[in-house]
Design a protein around this nucleic acid. Structure first.
Lengths: 268, 268
DNA sequence: CGTCAAATTGATTCACTTCAAAGCACGTGG
DNA sequence: CCACGTGCTTTGAAGTGAATCAATTTGACG
């Protein structure tokens, strides 16, 4: 409510074609067809636009603008009139719903390629807040709606993404409703490893991996339906079991990935 | 796993046009244009096909078949190869995910008009089981996919429905992760009232309503992330607060809807 | 080196679970 | 018509694990 101040302030917009990838590429390849801007974007592989290429991708990209958010800055607030839809290009965003007394549930962490901005009757249905430095590729609502009609491939991709999101949420509901703290934390870490070969170095062979957690313990607690204390104690428990090791608060080494998966629960 | 025996057994199919609405209508209106079959269907108002009418609706309906399920019968099992997508016409279906040791989380109850059958890589992503006598309107996967391409209105409606589902699930995650038993049960009852003017008689004015619960206490527990005992005790608590009254196990009278909404939690 | 926020650890409480028994509705058969 | 069994719900008693409250440690930064 009160931190809505930070939302949608300044942050001059840039056309997507410009900000999407490193400027060096632009400079050293000025003769390249424009279609390469978006195709080189870190989010493209999994984003809305992943089914587009060539001229289509270029035209689609031109309808969007880039925008930066600082850690803690709101992309939008629950209940705000929706003016834009977003694709996360880099950084990570937390989506959450709050109760009046401040209890919070984080419903998801959104990273590169993820779509953010679902609405109900034109209003955003959750708070969206940057965890670290975030770059988004955004479309205004009217442009986006028009665009969906024109690009069947985008609409079909959006549907795929929503379908995956629903299934992920079903899994998370199982976690929230039925899993123990150890299972929750293990599950969380396993998901972080599986999601990102980006920030976490995986070496499946020798059964180890590294995870970087951009979010705070409070965020993890609010995501898993626990308190910070329980998150902390559970991490300690996993540490004492030699399943993980803490390089720092945010940097976790997984010493026994198989065991972690087992703890996360046979099923999955 | 083991009760997959019951899945997709016999149950001869009928063309949608026939089973969709009461036969009396068909009989007494044989001169009516065929487009009315589906338009009179109890599920049509909110279903996939809600944006279709006239000839389009008729043609769309002809691609589907009807099927009946008995209480406890599986529509499909988690992990099954998906051959059909469903719209619930009548009755109610529970969707759930299970852990190996039997812990279960019901992720949603699906009633008339609701779409069922989300898949991941062509496999169903949950168990779907009839709670009472259920009639569904089903499309085979290939037919459905072809149809989506032909009917933009259906695709757009499906997207709306998925969007609503995601938002509902966000709310449910807040409930699972952060609400107390009383809040959970109150929330559940409020939702049941709001969802169905069908089975529950609402009289907003004098602040009372009636709800019929087709599912068992175990189902409610598995939906809300509680034990049956806690569900039962909490219902008793609400009874002693004179917020509700039990006509029978499945038939609840809400004596003070405003208070129930308050207990479900200020926000919402 | 001191400050401050965040994370961890410790001690205690209590709400929900677990285990156990009783109540209730419904159907079957004598 | 009533005795009896079955399945589901409710109620009771006891145990426990996560929340709460409180203190300490850690790490980042000026």
């Amino acid at each position: 409510m009160e931190n809505s101040v930070k939302t949608l302030v300044d942050e001059e917009d840039h056309v997507a074609s410009g900000g999407c990838i490193s400027q060096q590429f632009f400079a050293s390849n000025s003769a390249q067809p424009k279609t390469n801007y978006c195709s080189q974007c870190g989010a493209h592989k999994t984003a809305l636009c992943s089914k587009l290429s060539g001229e289509d991708l270029q035209k689609f990209g031109e309808k969007s603008t880039h925008k930066n958010f600082q850690p803690g800055q709101m992309l939008f607030n629950d209940g705000d009139e929706a003016d834009c839809f977003f694709t996360v290009v880099s950084g990570e965003v937390r989506l959450s719903r709050m109760l009046d007394d401040g209890r919070r549930q984080i419903t998801g962490f959104k990273a590169a390629g993820d779509f953010v901005g679902l609405t109900s009757n034109g209003l955003y249905s959750a708070d969206a807040e940057a965890i670290n430095d975030v770059v988004v590729c955004q479309f205004t609502v009217p442009v986006f709606e028009k665009t969906l009609e024109d690009y069947a491939a985008v609409q079909s991709r959006l549907m795929e993404m929503m379908q995956k999101e629903i299934i992920d949420m079903q899994n998370h509901m199982l976690l929230l409703g039925r899993k123990t703290p150890v299972e929750k934390i293990a599950n969380f870490l396993v998901e972080r490893v599986q999601k990102s070969t980006v920030q976490s170095e995986v070496s499946e062979n020798n059964n180890t991996a590294e995870v970087f957690l951009p979010m705070s313990r409070t965020d993890i607690a609010d995501f898993l339906g626990l308190t910070i204390e329980t998150v902390s104690r559970t991490i300690t428990k996993l540490r004492k079991l030699d399943v993980i090791e803490l390089k720092s608060f945010q940097h976790i080494v997984i010493l026994d990935f198989a065991e972690l998966q087992f703890l996360a629960d046979g099923d999955n």
